[in-house]
Structure formats: structure tokens, C-alpha cells
């Protein structure tokens, strides 16, 4: 097998990895915010439920969660699993898992905001929603960028876990080729891919942090 063909196959696996990455962030970042609201709610029931949710999501392996999301509908409800459900299951599993981590990051960021910001906004007549979205959240985003960067970089590597339900992302592809050709080359190529991917992500996050440096 020539090197060009190998790169082509790995490349299409890489596209799937990037899709998993993007879609996971797209869903888990807002979902995490909603969960953090529940976690900080005055309602004890809501608080307990979200606390339990976060604890389970963080306390069990993502690999296992993916399998539950994928096989759950069949074992629990006897619903026949379509092949097209694989990718959906991966996104659902990743988004649910990462939202739990993001929720805790949002919570720590929101709780670190000085109460004076809320009080100033209240006296100036801002509504609760205006206070949160105009005054609090933008400052929280700046504060939480470093921990979010850590999670995002972990996510790049975690996309390889999609192999457990046989979604042909890059790692699955590399494994298949390596087995067929009995060579290490696909693994090395995949490692380079992951590294470049992560490098780009880290550079982007650094750019974001720079953008927020206009104030302290």
C-alpha cells in the first residue's frame, strides 16, 4: 500500500475526528452552562439531580458511557439499532460527558465573580438576564479559558474513544490499516495527525486568551 493512499484513508478518518470534536463542543458548551445553572439553583431537587449527574459523568469512563448510549436503546427498550445511529450515539455520549466537565468549570468561574459586580448592575437597573449575559458571563469566559483549554485538548485525544462503537474516526482507521498491512506506519501517521490537530487547537485557545488580555 502506498503512502499516499494511506494518508488519504487516514485523512477521511481525521475528518470524522474533527466532526466529533466540533459537534461535541457545539453541544456541550451550552449544555454545560445549563447544567451549571441547575447545580447552583436554589431548588434542592434540581441541585441534587445535577450534582448526581455530574458525579456519574465524571466518575465513570467515557468509553463505557458511549457503549451505554449506543446499546442502551436496544437493551432497555428493544429498539433495533440502525448503523447510522453510531455517529449520533458518539456525539450524544461525548456531549453529555463533556457538558458535565464544562458545568463544573462554569460554576467555579461564576462563583468566583465578586458580588460587587452584581450589586453595581442591580443599582443601575439591569435585569437579571442582562446582568448575567452582559456583565457576568463575558468576565467568566475570560476566567475559565485556561481550564476550558485543558478540557478541549483532552477532547482531541478522547475522540479516539469512538472506536469502541466502530465509528471510523482516525484511530479506528489507523488500527484497521495497521492490522491488514502488519505495519506500524499508520499509527505513527495518526500520532502526527493528533499532534498537529492539538497544536492547532492550543494555538487557537492561546489566541483567544490574548484577545481577552485587553482588561484585567
Amino acid at each position: 500500500m502506498d503512502f499516499g493512499k494511506l494518508l488519504g484513508q487516514l485523512g477521511s478518518g481525521m475528518v470524522v475526528s474533527i466532526e466529533i470534536f466540533m459537534l461535541t463542543l457545539l453541544f456541550s458548551l451550552p449544555l454545560g452552562l445549563v447544567i451549571s445553572f441547575g447545580r447552583m439553583s436554589k431548588n434542592t431537587l434540581l441541585r441534587t439531580i445535577t450534582k448526581g449527574y455530574i458525579s456519574i459523568m465524571r466518575g465513570t469512563p467515557l468509553m463505557l458511557q458511549l457503549m451505554v448510549v449506543y446499546f442502551g436503546p436496544y437493551y432497555l427498550f428493544g429498539i433495533k439499532i440502525a448503523a447510522s445511529y453510531r455517529f449520533t450515539a458518539v456525539i450524544v455520549g461525548f456531549a453529555l460527558n463533556y457538558a458535565a466537565y464544562f458545568a463544573e468549570i462554569y460554576r467555579s468561574g461564576i462563583q468566583s465573580m465578586p458580588v460587587g459586580q452584581y450589586e453595581a448592575a442591580k443599582v443601575l437597573g439591569y435585569s437579571k438576564a442582562q446582568t448575567f449575559f452582559k456583565i457576568i458571563l463575558p468576565q467568566v469566559v475570560k476566567r475559565i479559558l485556561p481550564p476550558v483549554t485543558n478540557e478541549v485538548i483532552t477532547l482531541v485525544k478522547d475522540t479516539s474513544l469512538a472506536f469502541v462503537i466502530a465509528v471510523s474516526e482516525m484511530f479506528t482507521t489507523a488500527k484497521a490499516i495497521a492490522a491488514a498491512q502488519t505495519t506500524m506506519v499508520p499509527f505513527i501517521a495518526a500520532a502526527v495527525f493528533y499532534y498537529i490537530f492539538n497544536f492547532a487547537v492550543a494555538a487557537f485557545m492561546e489566541y483567544l486568551e490574548k484577545k481577552f488580555e485587553y482588561y484585567r
Binding site: 453595581a120 437597573g125 468576565q139
Partner: peptide, 25 residues
């Protein structure tokens, strides 16, 4: 109310600190 420790909005410029509430509240 003017606070002891100002409580300005650090992510807003001076101009926006002053104009935002009259405009949007």
C-alpha cells in the same frame, strides 16, 4: 449609588461603563 470600591465593569471601556445602562436599561 457610588461604592467604596467603585465596582466598575472591568471589561467595558470608560465610555461603555457610562453609556450602557442609559442605552439598554
Amino acid at each position: 449609588l457610588v461604592f467604596q470600591n467603585f465596582n466598575l465593569f472591568p471589561h467595558y471601556s470608560v465610555w461603555k461603563n457610562i453609556t450602557d445602562a442609559p442605552l439598554h436599561v
